[in-house]
Design a protein around this nucleic acid. Structure first.
Length: 888
DNA sequence: AGGGTCACG
DNA sequence: ACGTACGTGACCCTC
């Protein structure tokens, strides 16, 4: 069975270019579009196993479309040189792959592909068209499926005629009419001004085609009638322009499409030239160049070190090596450091890397290494030493003297990058390549510890890589002004966090089990009620089955769709409540089963048999804003908003008899931070006078006195305040308050009238982000926002909101981190027995002996409030009780 | 493995 | 016109 894949080269190159970070090879050549294109090709070849492949490109600047309409594609921004220089590279890549490429002067890629799909239809060959251009949907048929790139390049959404019908309610050919009515700004196709997708779809559902819409102008009303009347010609021409020409003279070129696989060696050469190291690995292609000498012209430094087993060194040699250690790498298998198995460690010292396996580390002979790890005066430069500290702690080894952590620094340098592995860092800094963990260990069920030899080499490569990273990352940290943030905040915090995690918090299983029994009874009751209302049994937990019951069997109106079907989330269900009794039951069922599965059963599984405690793992290098995250279990999302769930907190108790749980949380920290960074006088004044901020906002926005603010006004003001912190949009606010966009827009305008300093901040920070490419917090934490310059409205708007939100959320994160480091010092210095256990973004939780209650009630808020001096006071409220629930 | 949903700040 | 509020993690289902 033949399978054709036809790729819109220009469209995919564009997508890849904007989806990938601005990657260059060491010669300075931009390679990001080529890289994205390549990953997509590899994926298509692997998954689709095509027998024929073609990449079509647009040729030249003028096509037949310009004959009737010279403005076609006018006003389009020039292709940036960083992209255009990659087209020859991409074409060369395609040759290496052995994939055919066409371009024909006077025609666009669409037309070539359109012509070939016509052929595919005639010959009934299953064909996949890959593009980022929605226009191409018009080519879909029984044999032709369109893969539209969604996010990035490799992620595509498939459309056949049924899919198009589902999504738009149109046939493939009507896609042309859609464009005819709404136009396309990127191709400078005018359409009818004022008609967007929504209006166009409505018209087409009613009349079927552009021509029929024009025949029924009489039925239209008001402004819309005038516009359609005035732009009839535009609509007709737009339809013509949007029609893909399917008669390109290609003669018998179809034979050239045959694809018979790529030549590994040839492709490897190309990948080496472009320095696609991870792809070379992925193909299991031989690594670049010979070892040591020669080089491959990539400019990468060659690794050269001797790997020595610690056991083979004399005591004197080992002591000598440890004294001049450049770096250490400690390997643990498993994601959860409270359970991870230590595999071994490697210390890089000059020309040698000393390797110790996990087993031998615990033997008496390794005493010298253990004491080195515990020696606070011996500096450790490593990678993810927070995790290492926890893993070692379970073996009775206390890691001390951390001065440099490549992971933590990589995170500060780019907190949005999720792949901060040493393999990736080595590549980014053009260091000798480090194999990926996946390549060495396998992943998932296939995970396997390799032979001692292979393991030693892997650990050595990592330790060596860290040693090489030290000067480079230190330079970058200094250049970006984050040295102080690292040395005085993040690194000390890592130690404090590890202490909290090792301590753990006691959870009473009986309390949870009791709650679980009660939940079980109720869940069963709701289940049978739901079944009887539905008239059948089904899996309520399955959104798919639930959707079918609600929207097909019971015929409730579907409000929202997801990628895979009907949306049944709480927002939708709440709107459906009046239609059917079952909806309320489902909402309750969902609430209860969430509590049962995640918080009763989930938490019970995490309680350590021996200590009765749960030990979370705070991750310091995940959140893009600088916040912490919490895993295994997540103790930052324990229920509180609803009473039923809040009762879970009764299970969190002190670990010593007679002690108390004490919790302190910042009041309105984000809005206080906003008052400070925006300098807004009104907002500052509100906090200086310690007013209820939402009431105050309502007073100012609605122009009423405190007594006149009713519950509804306060609720609106609260939503506006939230919106402000998130980077407000009228759409978001309207959604939240269930009001029209117009009304939301008016609210926002009124807010900005009053809080002009806030408006100034919002405008300013977006400009700043555009100018610098990043935004910062008060402590100089940085977040890059490359998409702030995107031409795609969505991407750009997202980046703009992020620019507004990150300095606020990030500064709040800075502040509580400062408070934690200070608090840890205070507890130590004052010799208090109280322990800091948890952080929940704006809240700190302690366990406190009774005789320290008075001290802590004063000390904790004081430390939190003095963590950083702002133009407005910080405020922390404190409370305590016999469990977390009671400390409210 | 990825999507949907929902818990928190 | 474009279609979203900012930041996370866990559980369940589906493929």
């Amino acid at each position: 069975m033949d399978k054709w894949i036809l790729i819109d080269g220009n469209s995919i190159a564009n997508r890849a270019f904007y989806a990938m970070p601005p990657l260059t090879n060491s010669a300075g050549l931009y390679t990001n579009a080529a890289y994205g294109f390549t990953t997509m090709l590899l994926k298509l070849i692997e998954e689709e196993k095509p027998t024929h492949m073609l990449v079509a490109f647009d040729a030249g600047k003028v096509t037949f479309r310009h004959e009737g309409y010279s403005e076609y594609k006018g006003g389009r921004a020039k292709t940036p040189s960083e992209l255009s220089e990659q087209f020859p590279v991409i074409k060369e890549l395609l040759s290496s792959f052995g994939i055919a490429q066409f371009e024909l002067s006077g025609y666009e890629a669409d037309d070539i592909i359109g012509t070939l799909t016509k052929l595919a239809d005639q010959q009934q060959v299953s064909t996949l068209v890959v593009t980022g251009d929605k226009d191409m949907l018009q080519l879909a048929s029984d044999h032709v499926t369109i893969a539209l790139t969604r996010k990035g390049v490799s992620d595509v959404e498939l459309y056949d005629p049924n899919g198009i019908q589902e999504k738009y309610g149109l046939t493939p050919l009507q896609i042309i009419d859609l464009k005819g009515l709404m136009g396309d700004a990127s191709d400078n196709i005018p359409g009818i001004p004022g008609v967007g997708e929504k209006t166009a779809l409505k018209m087409l559902h009613e009349y079927g085609s552009v021509e029929e819409v024009l025949n029924h102008i009489g039925d239209l009303k008001g402004k819309m009638k005038e516009k359609v009347e005035a732009h009839q010609e535009d609509a007709r021409m737009s339809k013509k322009l949007a029609t893909i020409f399917r008669e390109v003279p290609l003669e018998n070129k179809a034979e050239e499409l045959v694809y018979s696989g790529y030549d590994k060696a040839q492709l490897a050469d190309m990948f080496r030239k472009l320095e696609f190291k991870s792809l070379i690995e992925r193909l299991e292609l031989p690594e670049a160049g010979g070892d040591g000498s020669g080089g491959d012209g990539s400019g990468a430094v060659e690794a050269s070190y001797e790997i020595v087993a610690a056991a083979d060194l004399s005591a004197a040699d080992l002591a000598d090596a440890l004294a001049k250690a450049d770096s250490v790498y400690i390997e643990a298998a498993g994601e959860n450091p409270h359970q991870a198995k230590l595999l071994g460690l490697a210390v890089s010292a000059g020309e040698r890397v000393i390797v110790v396996t996990a087993d031998s580390l615990l033997e008496p002979a390794s005493e010298r290494i253990r004491s080195w790890l515990e020696d606070a005066a011996a500096p450790k430069r490593g990678y993810d030493l927070h995790k290492a500290e926890l893993t070692l702690a379970r073996l009775g080894i206390e890691l001390r003297g951390t001065v440099f952590d490549a992971l933590l620094i990589a995170y500060l340098l780019d907190p949005t990058e999720s792949n901060q592995t040493l393999a990736m860092l080595a590549q980014r800094y053009h260091l000798p390549s480090v194999p990926s963990d996946e390549a060495v260990y396998g992943k998932g069920a296939k995970f396997q510890v390799p032979s001692d030899d292979v393991l030693a080499r892997h650990l050595a490569a990592k330790a060596d890589s860290i040693a090489r990273l030290v000067p480079l990352q230190e330079r970058d940290l200094e250049e970006s002004g984050m040295s102080k943030l690292y040395h005085e905040l993040e690194q000390p915090l890592a130690i404090v966090l590890a202490g909290m995690e090792k301590q753990g918090i006691k959870v009473n299983p009986e309390t949870l089990e009791e709650l679980g029994k009660e939940l079980s009874l109720n869940i069963d009751r709701y289940m049978s009620d739901i079944y009887s209302h539905a008239g059948m049994e089904f899996n309520i937990n399955s959104p798919k089955q639930l959707g079918e019951v609600l929207f097909e069997k019971l015929g409730l109106p579907a409000m929202k769709k997801t990628k895979t079907g009907y949306s049944t989330d709480a927002e939708v269900l709440e709107k459906l409540e009046p239609y059917h009794e079952i909806v309320r039951l489902i909402l309750h069922y969902r609430q209860l089963s969430k509590l049962q599965s995640t918080y009763v059963e989930g938490l019970l599984k995490e309680i350590r048999r021996d200590t009765g405690k749960v030990h979370t793992y705070y991750r310091q290098t995940i959140a893009a804003t600088g916040r912490l995250s919490s895993q295994f279990p997540n103790l930052q999302n324990i229920p509180i908003r609803l009473e039923e769930g809040r009762r879970i907190r009764k299970a969190f108790v002190p670990s010593e008899p007679g002690w108390f749980i004490l919790a302190a949380d910042y009041s309105q920290i984000e809005l206080r931070v906003l008052a400070h960074i925006s300098g807004d006088e009104k907002l500052k004044e509100a906090f200086i006078q310690d007013m209820d901020i939402h009431t105050k906002t309502a007073m100012d926005v609605f122009g009423v006195s405190a007594e006149e603010v009713d519950a509804n006004m306060r609720r609106s003001a609260k939503a506006v305040n939230f919106g402000i912190v998130y980077g407000i949009s009228d759409f978001g606010l309207s959604n939240n308050l269930n009001i029209t966009r117009k009304e939301a827009s008016k609210f926002i305008e009124q807010y900005f009238e009053v809080f002009q300093g806030v408006r100034g901040y919002m405008d300013n920070i977006v400009m700043q982000a555009r100018r610098d490419g990043y935004v910062t917090t008060l402590l100089e934490r940085r977040r890059y926002l490359p998409e702030i310059k995107a031409s795609n409205f969505n991407l750009r708007s997202f980046a703009e909101r992020t620019a507004m939100n990150t300095p606020i959320q990030g500064t709040a994160a800075d502040i509580i981190k400062l408070a934690m480091v200070r608090m840890d010092e205070e507890l130590r210095e004052k010799g208090l027995r109280s322990r800091m256990l948890l952080q929940v973004h704006d809240e700190l939780v302690f366990e406190v002996p009774e005789d320290e209650l008075e001290t802590m009630k004063k000390l904790v808020p004081e430390v939190m409030e003095r963590a950083l001096k702002l133009d407005v006071p910080l405020k922390a409220d404190v409370s305590y009780g016999v469990n977390w629930y009671e400390s409210k």
